[in-house]
Nucleic acid binder design. Structure first.
Length: 871
RNA sequence: GCCCCGGUGGCGGAAUGGUAGACGCUGUGGACUUAAAAUCCAUUGGUAGCAAUAUCGUGCCGGUUCAAGUCCGGCCCGGGGCACCA
């Protein structure tokens, strides 16, 4: 998926991975033995030939596990962020497979979007070719990484066998009243020459190119995500497998406010009403003026002839401002009075009507009642334009009847009402209810919930996207293309050299033989295409049934496989993609498209668990071409192999944290894998080939000495590694445990090496290593003779823990005096408290410390410590 | 401004309230080698000491506890999200 900020498109050079493979290997590899390049190619071919990772979604014999990386935008070549993302998901997928799950691990291409079109404009070539070339290159790179994808399920959002169903989805939403066209102030990017969704504007700038976004009033297509605002919010606490910060970001983005909508009448205009939204109806007696957004539809009507010139000038000035200038919070307030007045329905006082850009057209009703005594923005505005300020909530820190407006310290908290007629003395909470009820009883208002979330603007004035399946007929207006006439094909006879309009408008074929489906008269096609986020927000469903030509997917398969068990990707999609996907899932569920029963909550949420991986940094900074600190994955594959790259990128940091790339770290990992290789190479010299991985071990109580402690270490390592993967995917500690294990294996005596325990240790080591370094472990597995006997290591069962061997024979017990470490001694884990205490006291060192002191208390933690408290 | 998340050696990072610094990177010394690379061994938080050892040490201040990196309160710093949302 495109993360926007890394979207600068790069064209791949003409290298293929075959060329890369044939390059001479650097000297570090010329040491005898481990040769990752040959090993990796060999096994990749073998796995592919066997179809080892193809998933039969109909197989019910095993529990299902759906592992998913956010699919990539084919920008040119993989970067380290991709490598990290795919390595994490691949280890999870392989681990789950070895643990008996039927694992689905698919991949595809989020392949519509602007970089392809920009490249096309630059080279006057086809975006399709650019995209497909990139996909060819990047899928080769993925294959070189040894990722366990089910390639049969590969989807391309830019291919008609996919976007046909994106169009179907549009029509589905249209039928449900969830897709509509309206004229509204929208975000416009001059660089991209298109509108943007609210979520794609970051700090007033375009998410893609950082240029300033301007507001334009345009007729555009929207998806009614606001219909789902409450459900999107209410479900968040149930997403326990998501990072808190992501659910929190979504909560803040939706931002639900409760309050009231209240209608104000206008002086001398008995038929005109202005509705305002307020979260503070309790302060309504302090409302002293009203502000409309400059775009408010009543502005013209409410402007007096005397004020018209000033008002028009203000509106014009507002339109010229960029979004960022307009919404800067530290900006001084501006505005113009319309010359007319509204009546406060509670005080019956006249309130002047103003326009100001601090009122937002898209929020609430586009109009607000201003209470300067209890709102900082209103206060600043009132001060500047000398408008009246009325205190109606007593600040508990001020003495009674000592209004707080003397200072600039506006009281915005709740309190007790004053100067509010019959509502005096009520708390703000009570007053909110009663004042709203009063409006309701008298027919001029009601309680209302308002969200900050806006409807999703999905039309784009660009070529390389899924055409919106709508026709325009002079007689019938906007008419949906009948579903059986999908896909509406993206035309190829377009001219990319035109400027100022979408290239799609230059196509002749696109508008040929287009007739209205209802009246059969000639019609025109909609030339806008859909936001690529539409394509990418339902792909996880298509992966389950990618070749279906009748439907987007089969509900029975969806029901069996959804939700995604583990989703892995960047935090930058916390709001955009993840919220859109949740919305689609809910909307499809409501139309019974997903096979789940209506009330089944499982039909609501697409991703049960989410892991947001950190960035890959180098020298403390994000890798970027301009900084010159980019490390190319191919270079690492060439020099050290994919296993080293995978092992390293999972090592130093937990997956959620940023990862600092260090060249010396990669080398260290390569050396480690070489050491593993040598460990086995030594073993192969003397050992016979194995027939299976069930080695006859002596009984545990017969084991002694080094063999016994080795057996304990094997089990401790298996238990620790399994736990670290199951819980939080802490691959960094997994790797340190594997390293400790290998360090210990390298130190055992040659007698112990003859023991079947040592063989079991080697077998388990390979299994623990298999998800992380799949090629090397498979190759050594084959070296043991096991590949020929029982097949690929990746199809074997994850090692089991022998629980009796988890308890160590001896432990070190710490002796503390007043919590400070003073001595240590050896004991068994089961040594009783009294004995530990006696042993501690008997220590000469401890006796020294105790000399002449009174023992007040002794705390004994069996198997751990003795703490002697002295006076 | 509001809301989150962090702060541990030279660096990345480990530590169910119970031996702070696992594992690795870097550095230093050594073995092997004609030499280098590779490999192996030792060492690597600060201070004092030849040493055993002592002492300080997880952003700062305080608290709870036999015991605090970990829990509580207050601050400082860094990062992120939202931000004129009525």
């Amino acid at each position: 998926m495109d993360n926007g900020h890394a979207a600068s498109a790069s064209t791949p050079e003409n290298a293929t991975s075959a060329d890369i493979l044939s390059q001479a290997l650097p000297s570090i590899l010329q040491i005898k033995g481990y040769n990752p390049q040959a090993t990796e190619t060999k096994w990749q071919k073998a796995w592919e030939a066997q179809g080892q990772f193809r998933t039969d979604t109909a197989d019910k014999n095993k529990p299902k596990y759906y592992a998913l990386s956010m699919f990539p935008y084919p920008s040119g070549r993989l970067h380290m962020g991709h490598v990290r993302n795919y390595a994490i998901t691949d280890v999870i997928a392989r681990f789950k497979k070895m643990n008996g799950f039927n694992v689905l691990h698919p991949i595809g291409w989020d392949s519509f979007g602007l970089p392809a079109e920009n490249a096309a404009i630059k080279n006057n070539a086809s975006p399709k070719k650019w995209t497909f070339d990139n996909i060819a290159f990047m899928s080769e790179q993925m294959k070189r990484m040894g990722l366990s994808y089910d390639w049969d399920r590969e989807v391309y959002t830019c291919r008609e066998d996919y976007y046909q169903w994106t169009q179907w989805l549009f029509l589905y939403l249209y039928d449900k009243g969830l897709a509509y066209k309206k004229e509204a102030p929208v975000n416009w990017c001059n660089e991209c020459n298109t509108v943007l969704a609210n979520e794609q504007v970051i700090d007033g700038r375009c998410w893609r190119d950082d240029s300033l976004v301007v507001k334009k009033r345009l007729n555009q297509w929207f998806f009614k995500i606001t219909d789902y605002a409450d459900r999107l919010l209410e479900n968040l606490p149930q997403l326990t497998g998501w990072p808190d910060r992501v659910t929190l970001m979504q909560k803040n983005w939706i931002n639900r406010s409760t309050g009231a909508e209240i209608e104000f009448s206008v002086e001398n205009k008995p038929d005109t009403r202005i509705a305002v939204f307020t979260t503070r109806p309790d302060t309504i007696f302090g409302a002293t003026y009203m502000v409309l957004a400059p775009e408010h539809p009543l502005v013209a009507e409410l402007t007096t002839p005397e004020q018209k010139q000033a008002v028009d000038a203000y509106i014009k000035a507002t339109q010229l401002k960029s979004e960022i200038e307009r919404t800067a919070t530290d900006k001084e307030k501006t505005g113009v009075a319309l010359g007319t007045f509204t009546i406060n329905p509670y005080t019956q006082k006249k309130m002047p009507i103003w326009i100001s850009d601090y009122a937002l057209a898209e929020y609430g009703t586009g109009a607000l009642m201003a209470v300067p005594a209890h709102d900082e923005r209103d206060f600043a505005f009132a001060k500047k334009f000398s408008l009246p300020i009325e205190v109606v909530v007593q600040n508990p820190n001020n003495p009674p009847n000592n209004p707080n407006v003397v200072s600039d310290d506006v009281y915005t908290d709740y309190g007790t009402l004053i100067n509010s007629g019959e509502f005096d003395g009520l708390s703000s909470e009570e007053a909110k209810e009663k004042i709203t009820a009063f409006a309701e009883q008298n027919g001029f208002g009601q309680a209302r919930v308002q969200y900050r979330l806006r409807d999703w603007l999905v039309s784009r004035q660009r070529y390389w996207g899924a055409p919106i399946p709508i026709l325009y007929c002079d007689a019938c207006g906007a008419v949906p293309v009948p579903k059986d006439q999908l896909p509406v094909l993206l035309p190829e006879d377009v001219d990319f050299s035109v400027t100022g309009k979408s290239p799609i408008e230059t196509s002749k074929s696109f508008q040929q033989n287009v007739n209205c489906p209802s009246c059969a008269k000639p019609a025109r096609r909609e030339t806008d295409t859909m936001d690529t986020f539409v394509c990418s927000s339902w792909y996880y469903l298509r992966f389950l049934d990618p070749h279906n030509t009748e439907k987007p997917f089969d509900p029975d398969i969806i029901k069996r496989w959804m939700p995604v068990d583990q989703y892995v990707g960047g935090i930058e999609h916390a709001i955009l993609h993840l919220m859109y996907s949740r919305f689609f899932m809910m909307a499809l569920h409501d139309g019974d498209c997903l096979g789940f029963a209506k009330e089944d909550k499982k039909g609501d949420e697409p991703f049960a668990n989410l892991l947001t991986q950190g960035m890959v940094l180098k020298d403390g900074a994000k890798m970027s071409k301009s900084k010159g600190n980019v490390v190319a994955p191919d270079d690492i594959f060439n020099e050290f192999g994919a296993d080293t790259a995978r092992f390293f990128i999972l090592s130093d940091s937990p997956p959620q944290a940023d990862f600092d790339w260090k060249d010396s770290g990669v080398e260290g990992c390569f050396k480690f894998l070489t050491r593993v290789w040598r460990l086995f190479d030594e073993y192969f010299k003397t050992a016979a080939k194995l027939e299976d991985d069930q080695i006859a071990l002596p009984a545990y109580d017969q084991m002694g000495g080094e063999i016994r402690s080795l057996y304990q270490l094997v089990n401790k390592t298996v238990a620790g590694v399994s736990e670290d993967i199951e819980k939080e995917f802490q691959f960094n500690t997994v790797i340190s445990k594997i390293r400790e294990f290998v360090n210990a294996l390298g130190k055992v005596s040659s007698e112990t090496q003859q023991s079947p325990v040592y063989t079991v240790a080697l077998i388990n080591l390979l299994k623990l290593l298999a998800p992380i370094a799949p090629h090397l472990s498979e190759d050594l597995w084959a070296g043991l003779g096991l590949y020929d006997e029982i097949g690929s290591i990746h199809l074997q069962a994850w090692p089991k823990v022998d629980v009796q061997a988890l308890t160590a024979d001896a432990v070190e017990v710490v002796v503390q005096i007043n919590g400070k470490l003073r001595d240590k001694f050896q004991a068994t884990p089961s040594t009783p408290k009294e004995e530990l205490e006696a042993k501690a006291k008997a220590s000469p060192k401890i006796q020294e410390y105790l000399a002449g002191k009174e023992i007040k208390k002794i705390i004994v933690v069996p198997g751990k410590l003795v703490n002697i408290v002295v006076g």
